[in-house]
């Protein structure tokens, strides 16, 4: 599966492929299809994909970590939501569990949690979650100097030029999103979901939580609702998307349109050479909530892409069948370069 030749590469290290997993079959799918690292979370509010039936219990996480280790890959644990006063002990416990498993890194958003992890378990690497929304060199320096953060995941609001400039000066490793659902808002600072449902990624680990979602079918339309607010109305021949607030169809003056963003997924395959050239340490695939088959397909495409780029350098080009595979898996079957590509903004 893995083609790890290194010929003619001028970058010091090959870019790392970081894949999501919400259960053991997904862990296997990620590892078996070429992930260099797998990120997972506990099945509680301590991580930003808190969905029913997803993620790992205190005991099942051991099996996941074991499988990843047995195959010589890295494991990261996402503790990337914000504890409120009453449930602070649960986040502390999540850090302790990650540390006791000896995982390769904890992905953290909250400063109190970061401080706890840094002082209690200094030997476990700390990555800055995208939810902390560090978008500038000064912000990266702050987290690096104050909490010894080793790597930061960049928000999906930066252009490729901005990513390149940051990477040139960053005191820490940078990880960027390569594929998956596209947050168009600065991550960790979006309260659209809690405004309508009460739950947000920050406070509950969920955007547009399932308990608030309703699909209503009538003879001519399918309506999607979030806490009774109409998000979109689809004709029978239209593909209906999950009711996320930033991807609804709304009325602004006399225009009815996707006022914030269309249902679309991020796909940065074409920018792999620039990202690698900039010295980006890792590409992150979004989607711990996705099925194992999805994760397997996405991981396989990105493994091939990274390995091909490592072999071919500047003559690399993304293959049409990779794009086809990813488009089939994308929201609304559409992909975009998102903020990496300036005109998107």
């Amino acid at each position: 599966m893995r083609e790890m030749e290194t010929c003619g590469m001028n970058t010091a290290r090959q870019i790392e492929l970081v894949c999501p997993a919400g259960n053991l079959p997904s862990v296997k799918a990620a590892v078996d299809n070429g992930a260099d690292a797998v990120y997972i979370g506990l099945n509680n509010k301590t991580n930003a994909r808190y969905f029913s039936g997803l993620n790992f219990s205190d005991s099942s996480i051991e099996k996941a970590v074991q499988y990843i280790r047995d195959h010589g890959r890295k494991v990261f644990v996402a503790i990337n939501t914000y504890p409120q006063e009453k449930n602070w002990p649960q986040w502390r416990e999540a850090v302790d569990i990650g540390a006791s498993l000896g995982v390769d890194a904890l992905i953290i958003a909250d400063i109190g949690v970061m401080d706890y992890a840094a002082s209690r378990h200094p030997h476990i690497a700390r990555h800055l979650s995208v939810q902390a929304s560090a978008t500038s060199l000064e912000a990266l320096q702050f987290y690096h100097e104050q909490f010894g953060i080793r790597r930061a995941v960049l928000p999906r609001v930066l252009s490729l030029k901005q990513v390149e400039r940051l990477a040139a000066k960053s005191p820490l490793e940078l990880e960027v999103f390569g594929f998956g659902s596209l947050c168009i808002m600065a991550e960790g600072r979006c309260y659209l979901s809690s405004y309508v449902t009460g739950d947000s990624p920050n406070n509950c680990g969920a955007c547009s939580p399932a308990h608030a979602v309703r699909w209503e079918e009538s003879a001519h339309t399918l309506e999607t609702r979030l806490n009774n607010v109409l998000i979109d109305r689809f004709r029978p021949d239209e593909p209906a998307g999950y009711p996320t607030l930033c991807k609804g169809r709304f009325q602004v003056e006399q225009h009815l349109f996707h006022a914030l963003e269309e249902p679309v997924s991020l796909n940065a395959l074409d920018m792999l050479p620039q990202l690698a050239g900039a010295g980006i340490a890792a590409i992150k695939i979004e989607g711990r909530q996705r099925a194992p088959a999805y994760i397997a397909k996405v991981a396989r495409v990105w493994r091939q892409a990274i390995d091909r780029h490592a072999r071919m350098g500047s003559s690399y080009a993304a293959q049409p069948d990779w794009h086809r595979t990813l488009a089939e898996l994308a929201e609304g079957s559409q992909t975009t370069l998102g903020a990496y590509h300036r005109p998107w903004q």
């Binding site: 600065a186 309260y191 003056e253 998107w344 903004q345």
Partner: peptide
Amino acid sequence: RLPLAHSARCFTARFLNRPKD
């Protein structure tokens, strides 16, 4: 009015069908 979210994208420009730049 609660400032609920910030994006790299300008939604006023998008509504008016103009590039942000």
